[in-house]
Amino acid sequence: MIAQFEVLAPKTIQEALQLISGNPRAKILAGGTDVITGFHQGSSRFIDTTTLIDINHIPEMHAITETDSHIVIGAGTPFTHIVENPGVIKYFPLLAESCSVIGSLQIRNRATIGGNFINNAPCADSVPALLVYEAKIRIQSAISDREMPLADFLVKPYKTQLKPDEIVTEVILTKFDDGYKGNFYKLGRRRGVAISRLTIAVFGKVENDIITDIRIASGAVTPIGMRIAELEQKLIGKPANDDSLKEAAIELGKIILEKTGIRWSAPYKLPVMQQVCYQQLHTLVFGKE
């Protein structure tokens, strides 16, 4: 079923950028979980594609580097490497956790973090964690090099700020000071290898029984993975008690209802999102029982 195409395997980012430059019929091949099945099934997305640029031979694209203040993950890094990376586990545990429940091990061994958000599919499981960590991404082309928050990059479902001759090369995470805690929750229909029905990441800080910082991001329930800024604003400065958390969870329901409208899944997902939000905030504030 696969149409004819040529596969190029550049060894450096610069080489890859040259190859994609001015070639609208070229696409990046990273983990292949989307591209190869798409080709095999004759998906219309790949009708015009004549060239695949395989980025798996570019060392920087799948390197994880740590400095005192940052961890930088090559956008072509497979999830398995992220899940096993001691720095990620220590400083960004929600990312490690969310990446560990994506697909099967075979998928995690190939599928990449960049590939997870580059399509901006609503059920990209790593996105909520990246959003609460306020991840930035680096986007390069043969003639440009820019950074932007992931939150800005994700425009709307299946649409990002990526231009045709650009490649996302890095995910940049800034370390946090002590005192932040967080939780990630994924709800799937089964325990092994499930597409998420909804995901939520909560991340924040409680000082003297006051919520001094909080970040909440959702996936698979909003049109794209997103931070719920309105809710965060309301919660910051509130006392860290059960009542505040309940109010916040209910508020989240209202916000999502407004953002997404009533979809077929709303009667299930909306109430459950409130429950899950409450429970994750509860665990964040009061700890696990």
């Binding site: 309940k246 969870a249 329901g253 709303a266 429950q275």
Partner: peptide, 24 residues
């Protein structure tokens, strides 16, 4: 019974409908 209705306003829970992690 919390979500037993398809009316949109029923999708929003009340505080007493929220279930604590240790009761879930």
């Amino acid at each position: 019974n919390f979500a037993n209705d398809s009316e949109a306003n029923q999708f929003i829970l009340t505080k007493d409908q929220l279930i604590a992690p240790d009761k879930t």
